[in-house]
Design a protein around this nucleic acid. Sequence first.
DNA 1: GGAGGAATGTGGACATTGTCAACATCGGGG
DNA 2: CCCCGATGTTGACAATGTCCACATTCCTCC
Lengths: 182, 182
Amino acid sequence: MSTSGDGAYHHGDLRRSLIAAAQALLRTGGIEAVTLREAARQAGVSHNAPYRHFPSREALLAAVAAEGFRILHRAQADAAEGAAPADRLKAFGRAYLRFAAEDRASFRLMFGGALDPADHPELAAVAKRTYGALESVAGDDATPGTGFVGRDALRAWALVHGLAHLVADRQIDAAEAEACLS
Amino acid sequence: MSTSGDGAYHHGDLRRSLIAAAQALLRTGGIEAVTLREAARQAGVSHNAPYRHFPSREALLAAVAAEGFRILHRAQADAAEGAAPADRLKAFGRAYLRFAAEDRASFRLMFGGALDPADHPELAAVAKRTYGALESVAGDDATPGTGFVGRDALRAWALVHGLAHLVADRQIDAAEAEACLS
DNA sequence: GGAGGAATGTGGACATTGTCAACATCGGGG
DNA sequence: CCCCGATGTTGACAATGTCCACATTCCTCC
């Protein structure tokens, strides 16, 4: 279907370039600065080329968010790999906090509620995968009735999630947050 | 300076009307749906009238966020009033979770990072007041060195904050979150 | 190897929006 | 009673998201 199997006709790999440009815009100017036309400009294509890869601005944002989930997932997998099973949850939490501190803008895009995963299947898939990994590490005290992990695991998740938001909002710094992981 | 001391020349109280319209837009369509022109339309004035009360769209959003902080502050004060000192922190948390559940859009505007309090003094003031009330209730185990509450209090705050975000994102429901408050 | 069609990119157009500048109107204080 | 500032209006402009018609490039199938 294409030379590289990924969509490389005229530009090379416009889809990837647009996502990279959007990431840069996101990190420097926040979500509002992510603009289809500016991403196209940075990729060196016309203002309408992005529509061959993303049906809307939201779809581009969703792709950037999905990429964020992939980065987070990899970081968590790396962190959990070298840890004893008992320390795995803590390692997960540390990786989470580190991500929130290092890429605040992506974190906010992923967890700030600007995107509804229901509208973006790919985003929903990677988000679900991340949560699934968390649940499996959080232990087997899942409560099938609620369709969710047990109360202690939920508390642990909420604690880390809240710390991450505080870190992303610069209300506490990363070291202070990590110190809270018992 | 005016008939009512609050700014009521031609329209009556345009500033308040604009905030109310913006709140409605926020709750139905999210932050992006809050538009100066639409707020003006709903208030029955021309598209430029809002500039007599808000220097920019962001300023209107900041005013809405500040109103959210006032609502939250009042709810917390009401909740803490009838509680024994030992239960006060829990009552605070419950009020916080209830607010996040009942007014998800405002919660996201207030804590989603879209607004930088440094740019909006009034918002910074009410936010600080809310945090101050929380600190005073969280007990006197504040750590002056960090300029912040002690580790246990921070943990408690982060837990509630994380639960509130999960509630606002509809990933858990309010009852489940409240059940996590020990 | 060449034609056809799909994938990709371009240019132009339109409505909406934030924002600025110039002008109109209203009301209270001198 | 008149003037000035507060408030509101009209007009304009640039940027943006999105749609449409058209051009170009590459793959596939005969």
